[in-house]
Design a protein around this nucleic acid. Structure first.
Length: 575
RNA sequence: GCCAGCUUAGCUCAGUGGUAGAGCAGUUGAUUUGUAAUCAACCGGUCAUCGGUUCAAGUCCGAUAGCUGGCUCCA
């Protein structure tokens, strides 16, 4: 049997699906059915509202169509013939799509079984070659993705050459589900949100807050080590600030309504930069002071549409690990390079080794001198090169105020997350008239770079939970060790062991419940405790504990000194 | 915001229009345990909220809120 590219298989399956849908719902109007990174979809317009049961029915019909082994027949029509064919069938979306095909290009159709579709192809030869497929979900989707267009129904599915590969993919979906930070966040008692507080606003429970504080402390230390200074700024600022910054012109929809204080409008901050700029402007700055690197874990609030909120990954109140670098033109190249290196080392500390940069260049509508864009872009490019990374370029994908590099990191189960962003800003220095006095005694406009390494603390925490599957490395664990005395007779020995570990700075707890050892082990494992120390009569008599490690399993008996040494070594190595 | 679905105990979930349930968790007691669940009793509910239909609503209808999957958006 001939082998086909995955996209061809998936796109062919989408035709088979459309064919099945046409059979079950003859009045259906069809849009398009492309393959995607994970599978395929097809958009339909129909009276009936598709349910999960419908997906099963569609799948059954699909299986039949596949087994009937229809050929994918290719034919071309003139534009007039195509219009006539689609018009007769009342396929208004297809007619719209037909208009997209430039004149002079071939207008091709594929027919397989009872379904004929305007389609570029390519396809497998016969419906029996579509491999193993599964329909996954149904969702609404605007025609052409535009909000004012009609809402179509989209069926998502996936397909692979073999059943084995399909099963492996479905298993990965299961694995992702098990790691879902919303589920683990509840089970491990890390965070929640409350209807009464409001959607998209996160409540950090003691354990979640402990982990957050621990990596925030690390973050702060690393920033000091890397030549940053920390600043703190308020949560609200007067409307004048946001007028000057331009936020009220460009992003008002995402900002919350103002509050009146003594007759002045104040807005909750959607960004930290205007405040940092105010610090800059408190005095005349000399080139000798630059570069300035000011970092802040600054909590901002942005209006997000209700439908997009998602656990910790998309919220309305979040903390940016923000920093602004203000420097001279001569400094930007090394500054950018340092930021990139800093980011890579930060991600490495959390066990993310696969990091990929995306460079976004000048869009059509933008501000700033051409020479600045060129220099900025060049510095971004060189930094990537110097780091020895492969970089994808998004032409015209930059913000209107400057070019940027975004980093995507790959987690433990291979998913990519967009996190770090390094952005030039040619807009705010102008708007706030930021200057420094150069060597020549004249005023100059500094370069300004916004950067966030982790992105937002909330989102980063969500990513971490899924990356580690809830099993945080020892340095982040609120509880690093749980001590289980087998019976009440070992309580004193367990207390002594606990005290010894605690005195060495280990975060240890005891489970003195009169449950069986097996039951308490189960609970400790479910709580993802990295070390469990069991103390029975034997261990108590010699002052040791039987140690079970989350990573290595049973590792034998250790006294408190030996265990502390092992745990400290894990902490130092961020294991 | 839009489309669809969902919302029953802290959690996971049963429940023909006719007396609100189970397991786990929690509390109490018994048990003194050797590496993933000891036993028992008890506690726990305005069935998301509000309104409607009905002799009767967890169940049918409507509105609102929240959640889920997408779409759009993400400075």
């Amino acid at each position: 049997m001939a082998s086909f590219p995955l996209e061809t298989i998936r796109h062919s399956v989408s035709h088979v699906m459309a064919c099945a849908v046409q059979e079950l719902f003859p009045e259906t109007k069809f849009d398009i059915g492309p393959s995607t990174a994970d599978g395929f979809y097809y958009d339909f317009d129909m009276e009936a509202r598709l349910s999960p049961e419908d997906l099963e029915k569609i799948e059954t019909v699909m299986a039949r169509i596949a087994s009937e082994d229809h050929a994918f027949e290719y034919f071309e029509l003139t534009r007039e013939e195509a219009e006539k064919l689609l018009g007769e069938k009342g396929q208004q979306y297809k007619l719209e799509r037909l208009k997209d095909i430039p004149s002079g290009e071939k207008i091709s159709f594929y027919k397989s079984g009872g379904f004929t579709d305007l389609c570029r192809g390519p396809h497998v030869e016969k419906t029996s070659q579509v491999g193993a497929f599964k329909l996954l979900s149904v969702a609404g989707s605007y025609f052409r993705g535009k909000e004012d267009n009609p809402m179509l129904q989209r069926i998502y599915g996936t397909a692979f050459p073999s059943k084995k590969e399909l099963d492996a993919y479905l298993k990965q979906l299961e694995e992702a589900k098990k790691r879902d930070h919303r589920k683990l966040g509840r089970e491990l008692d890390l965070f929640s949100s409350a209807d009464q507080v409001g959607p998209g606003l996160i409540l950090w429970h003691p354990k979640g807050a402990f982990i957050r504080n621990t990596f925030e402390t690390f973050w702060k230390e690393e920033h000091y080590k890397n030549g940053y200074e920390l600043v703190n700024t308020p949560h609200i600022g007067r409307s004048d600030l946001w007028h000057t910054s331009g936020h009220l012109d460009f992003y008002k929809d995402a900002m919350y309504s103002p509050m009146d204080i003594d007759g002045n409008d104040y807005f909750v901050k959607p960004m930290n930069c205007p405040f940092h700029i105010q610090i800059y402007k408190t005095k005349l700055r000399s080139y000798r002071e630059l570069p300035l690197r000011w970092a802040e874990l600054g909590t901002v609030y942005r209006y997000e549409k209700s439908g997009v909120l998602h656990g910790l990954l998309r919220v309305r109140g979040f903390t940016q690990d923000d920093a602004h670098i203000i420097c001279t033109p001569e400094q930007i190249e090394s500054e950018i390079s340092e930021v990139l290196q800093f980011s890579l080392s930060m991600w490495k500390a959390f066990g993310f080794k696969d990091v990929k940069p995306y460079l976004a260049t000048r869009p059509e509508k933008s501000v700033g001198e051409e020479s600045r864009w060129t220099q900025a872009l060049e510095s971004l490019r060189k930094a990537v090169e110097k780091a020895g990374l492969e970089c994808e370029v998004d032409e015209g994908g930059g913000a209107f105020y400057g070019p940027k590099i975004d980093l995507k990191v790959r987690d433990a189960i291979g998913r990519e997350w967009q996190t770090t962003t390094i952005q030039f800003d040619f807009n705010l220095p102008e708007r706030f008239d930021m200057t420094y006095i150069g060597e020549d005694g004249q005023k100059h406009r500094p370069y300004m770079v916004h950067r966030a390494l982790l992105g937002s603390i909330e989102r980063f925490f969500g990513i971490l939970v899924e990356h580690y599957a809830g099993a945080f490395p020892v340095w982040l664990c609120p509880e690093q060790l749980r001590i289980l005395p087998i019976t009440e007779k070992q309580h004193d020995a367990a207390c002594a062991y606990l005290k010894a570990l605690k005195s060495k700075g280990i975060r240890a707890e005891m489970d003195l419940r009169s449950e069986t050892v097996g039951s308490r082990i189960k609970d400790a494992r479910n709580d993802r405790i990295p070390y469990i120390a069991v103390i029975g009569e034997r261990e108590a008599s010699v002052g040791t504990a039987a140690i079970r490690s989350r990573r290595e399993g049973q590792i034998g008996e250790l006294d408190s000194w030996g265990l502390a040494e092992k745990i400290v070594s894990d902490i130092d190595n961020k294991i």
